[in-house]
Design a protein around this nucleic acid. Structure first.
Lengths: 185, 185
DNA sequence: CACCAAATATACAGACCTGTCTGTTTAGCA
DNA sequence: TGCTAAACAGACAGGTCTGTATATTTGGTG
């Protein structure tokens, strides 16, 4: 095992940043939790910001992999997959470790002047929207961009209400709304 | 003028916390920007957390006052007011100083272990939902709770996408979706 | 075994942050 | 004018944070 230290650092930081936030999680806490030496961290990541960016990119990769994969598992046709999006969303929100969307949280913590981090957050949301857009197009709706954007609004709304208000039913309620919008489109 | 210092502190902190985040804004920055002495701050607020709570409570008060008032201005009947919600939302998102919802941002920055701050954020969202619920009931919809929750999802979704992706049209697009949901209810 | 690169422990610099302490100045009011 | 309470300036304590320097230990490979 060559340098799985780097991966291990990202892993640990991912968990801590998500659970406690970026500013609240100091480098030392990540080092203690991972059992890695400080010099090793700074060899792989020139600064904390670089580590944060790496963590966000990893999170984006994993989350989309999980989310998209789960949607494919649950839904058979394109129409069913579209509905499954909201079942997967519900699964996520109802999970014990749910603490909102890491990218929304990052955008909240880093003002827009931190372009690099804000950009990763924005990119993630764009990729999520594009996934929805693909499903809507596959399902053959007219005006697909309109519908997919509207479904994205519901997804983001459910994440926020699920997090801020702790409403575990936010995903299920978003699903109901989505069905209305899909029926009307 | 006796103790408008306290109010002035809240004012300055409100602006800085919203623009740059809570952790990124140090006490000293607030003092420098407001021209108030440190001892004065700590006389009125025992800790930074107390100041943050006071700021959030003030923000909640002002924001709802502005938002609700603006909705009343723009809409005549209950139905029109419901639509106006999304016009006011759009106004907000399109404003130059828009940096998302301060309560979503607070919830992101303070993990749920900080009960007091998370509670203020949750309370704010509940009050916003109740406002929507009142409008929906006035408009005479059946299943008002269902519709008002769905509209709330759209509102929160638009705030998030408007912030994270910088999409100034998020409010207008949420309005379209709202009209579909209202027509289907 | 010997070598070498990687990772380690640990101390430290320097910045910043919250919160306190001390003494001075201001401003309203009798 | 003189009293009083509030706000002031500014130094300081104590902690935490990021990032660096140094010297030691590990672990894989010839």
């Amino acid at each position: 095992m060559p340098s799985n230290r780097k991966q291990h650092l990202v892993e640990t930081a991912l968990k801590l940043f998500y659970q406690e936030g970026f500013h609240s999680t100091g480098i030392d806490k990540i080092l203690a939790a991972s059992g890695v030496a400080k010099m090793t961290l700074y060899k792989h990541f020139p600064s904390k910001d670089d580590l944060i960016r790496a963590v966000l990119e990893e999170r984006d990769k994993r989350f989309r992999e999980w989310f998209f994969g789960r949607v494919e598992e649950l839904g058979n046709g394109p129409q069913e997959k579209l509905v499954a999006v909201f079942d997967v969303l519900t699964e996520w929100i109802q999970g014990d470790d749910f603490r909102g969307c890491m990218f929304i949280n990052a955008a909240a913590e880093f003002s827009s002047k931190n372009d690099a981090i804000s950009q990763v957050a924005s990119d993630h949301k764009v990729l999520m929207c594009e996934f929805l857009d693909g499903l809507v197009k596959d399902a053959g709706y007219s005006n697909p961009e309109t519908l997919s954007y509207q479904l994205a609004l519901l997804v983001e709304g459910a994440i926020v209400i699920g997090h801020v208000c702790g409403d575990k039913e936010a995903g299920a309620k978003a699903k109901e709304a989505a069905l209305v919008l899909m029926a009307g489109a």
